[in-house]
Design a binder for these strands. Structure first.
Lengths: 293, 293
DNA sequence: TTCCGTTACGATACACGTAAAAATC
DNA sequence: GATTTTTACGTGTATCGTAACGGAA
C-alpha cells in the first residue's frame, strides 16, 4: 500500500456507463485475494488474458486504478481495497437474493436457523420446544452461521460475540457468559481458582488451537489445527492443546477435562441475529420466543 | 397474489449455474415495478423480446417462477416479491461499491455527509464548527439522505425517525423532539394549547400535503403536492395546507405562521447513521463529535 | 533467463432488434 | 379484435482461448 498519487484515470473516451456486472466483481475479488492474475485465472477456470482485460474494463468503467502491477504479482491500491470490501458485500447481497428467492418458492418455506454445532444446546432445545413450527436448524462449523445469514442460506442465526461479527444485522442479546480454560484432567494448574489469559498463553506444551479463517486457511502458530469441537476435545484429552471457551460448553465435556475460569478473557454473548430488512413474521416470532426464554 | 401451487420449475436440463448478473436483476426490478414487459422495456430503452428472454433465463437459473403472466401485464409470485426486495438491496450494494470506490480514489476523499435541507440546522452548524476537516455536506430533499447512504454516494447521514428507515445502518440517536402543526397565522385553531392528529386530519380546507414516494410518484389524496420545504411554507402562508413537523423547524418559519403542539404525533428522533461496515476513522470521529454536542 | 502481465487475433457465444405467432381477455 | 407475451431468425457485440509480445527481477 505505497502512497501512490494518481489513482484516477484520465477519461480519454470510452463507454463509461455505470453498469458494473457481478462477473467483473467476482473476477476482481479473485485477483485481489490471490494477488496474482495467473492463480486467479486458474481459480476462475479461465485463461489470464480475458481476466486481465476484464479488470482493465472495470478500471476504465470506474475511472480508477485498482491494482499496482508488479513483476511478481499485483497489490491493491487504496481504492482497490475499498472495492474488495464493497464487492464482497455486494456479491453476498446478490447471492442472498438468489438463495432467499429459491427458498421462498420451496415446497416447505420454513425458517432456517443457523447455529454453531455444539453451542447453545440448552437454549436451542428450549427454543425448538417452544417454537416447533417449521424451523430448520442448520448446525455448522465456527464462523459458518454468520456466512449463511449473509449469503441468504439462513433466515436467523445464533451468533457469539465477539467471535462473530454482527455488523449489518439486527440482533438481540440472549445470554452472556464468562469463559474458562479447558485443561486435561490432572494438569498441574487444574486446581487453580482462576487463570489469566497471559498464563494460558504461556502454558508450555499446551498451545491454543488454530481455527480456520473464513477462506479456509489456517494462521501460523504452534497450536494444532482444528475444524470442530470434537477434534478439539480429543486433542485436549490427549494433552496436546488447551482451549478457552464459554463455560456452558463444559456440559459437553467428559470427566477427563478440568476447567478453570479465566476472568480476563472477554465474555461471550450469545445473540440471535437476522437480516435487517426481514419482513418475515415467522422470524419475528422466533426472535420474540428466544428473548422470552 | 393468488395461491398458485407449483412455483418451482422442473429442472429439465440447462445451465443452472448460480451466476446471476446485475443486468438480470435490473431487468427484473423494472418489470416488477412496471408490472408490464412493454413499459419496462421502454424504461430500459430496449425491445420487449430480449427482456422477456432475460427474465425467462433468470427464472430458469433460479428454478423459480417469478411472474404470473396475464393478458394485461404481470403480477409477482410470492418468490418474485422476495426477489424484488432482495434485488433492490443487491443492486444498491453494487452501486455502493462503485461509488465508494470512485470516491476513495478521488483527489480529495473527504467524508460526505447527507442531510435533509433545512433540518437540524443548528446541529449541523455546530457539527461543522467542531469538525472542520474535509466534510462535504450534501443538502437534499426528503428521503434522499437515506438513499445516498444506501447507494454509497454518502458516508454518513442525518436521518429522522420514523420518517427515514434506518434498517441496515449503524446509528446513534442525537436528539428527540415533539411535533407541532403549522397553521396560517390567524387560523381559528391557532390559539388552542394543543391539537390531536385526528383534529389535524380533519381540518376543513387545510389538508396535509403529499410528499413524493421514493419512485417520485405521489400518493392520492386531497392535499397539494410538495417537493421541498419552501413550497410547503408558502402553501401554508397561502392558507392551502397545514403541516405537521418537528418543532425545531419553527425557527425557519416567518411570522405569518402559527404553531400548535400535537402531543399524539410521533416524536421525531434525529439520528446520525453510517454503513455498518465502515472502517473509516473519519466517520467514527464525526459520529463521536456529533454525539458530544 | 524466467516469471508475470499485456496485446493481437480468430472463433464462439451471448444479447439485441425486427418480424411473425400464440395466448388471453 | 384488441392487448400482451412469446418464439423465430438474422446481426452485431463481447467474451473467451491460443499465441505472440513487453518488462521487471
Amino acid at each position: 500500500m505505497d502512497g501512490d498519487t494518481a489513482p484516477v484515470l484520465p477519461l480519454v473516451g470510452g463507454a463509461y456507463d455505470g453498469a458494473v456486472e457481478t462477473r467483473e466483481l467476482r473476477y476482481f475479488v479473485a485477483v485481489a485475494e490471490e494477488s496474482h492474475f495467473g492463480r486467479a485465472a486458474q481459480r476462475l477456470a479461465m485463461a489470464q488474458p480475458p481476466l486481465s482485460r476484464a479488470i482493465q474494463q472495470l478500471e476504465r468503467r470506474l475511472g480508477v486504478v485498482l491494482l499496482h502491477r508488479t513483476a511478481r504479482g499485483v497489490t491493491l491500491t487504496e481504492a482497490g481495497s475499498v472495492l474488495l470490501r464493497e464487492a464482497r458485500l455486494a456479491l453476498e447481497a446478490v447471492e442472498a437474493a438468489e438463495h432467499r428467492t429459491r427458498r421462498a418458492a420451496a415446497d416447505r418455506p420454513g425458517v432456517v436457523l443457523a447455529t454453531k454445532a455444539g453451542a447453545s444446546r440448552e437454549l436451542l432445545s428450549k427454543l425448538l420446544d417452544a417454537y416447533v413450527d417449521a424451523v430448520d436448524v442448520v448446525l455448522c462449523g465456527p464462523g459458518e452461521p454468520e456466512r449463511l445469514l449473509r449469503n441468504g442460506r439462513a433466515d436467523v442465526a445464533l451468533l457469539h460475540r465477539p467471535y462473530d461479527t454482527t455488523a449489518g444485522f439486527d440482533t438481540e442479546d440472549l445470554h452472556t457468559e464468562r469463559q474458562v480454560v479447558v485443561l486435561p484432567a490432572g494438569h498441574p494448574l487444574a486446581d487453580r481458582p482462576h487463570l489469566s489469559m497471559a498464563e494460558v498463553n504461556t502454558l508450555t506444551g499446551l498451545p491454543l488451537p488454530r481455527w480456520p479463517r473464513r477462506d479456509g486457511s489456517y494462521p501460523d502458530g504452534p497450536g494444532p489445527q482444528v475444524r470442530d469441537h470434537t477434534q478439539l476435545t480429543q486433542l485436549i484429552t490427549l494433552g496436546r492443546a488447551c482451549a478457552v471457551m464459554p463455560e456452558s460448553l463444559r456440559a459437553q465435556l467428559g470427566d477427563d477435562h478440568a476447567i478453570v475460569p479465566v476472568p480476563d478473557a472477554p465474555a461471550v454473548t450469545t445473540v440471535i441475529a437476522w437480516p435487517p430488512h426481514s419482513r418475515s413474521k415467522a422470524v419475528a416470532d422466533l426472535v420474540r420466543t428466544a428473548q422470552s426464554l
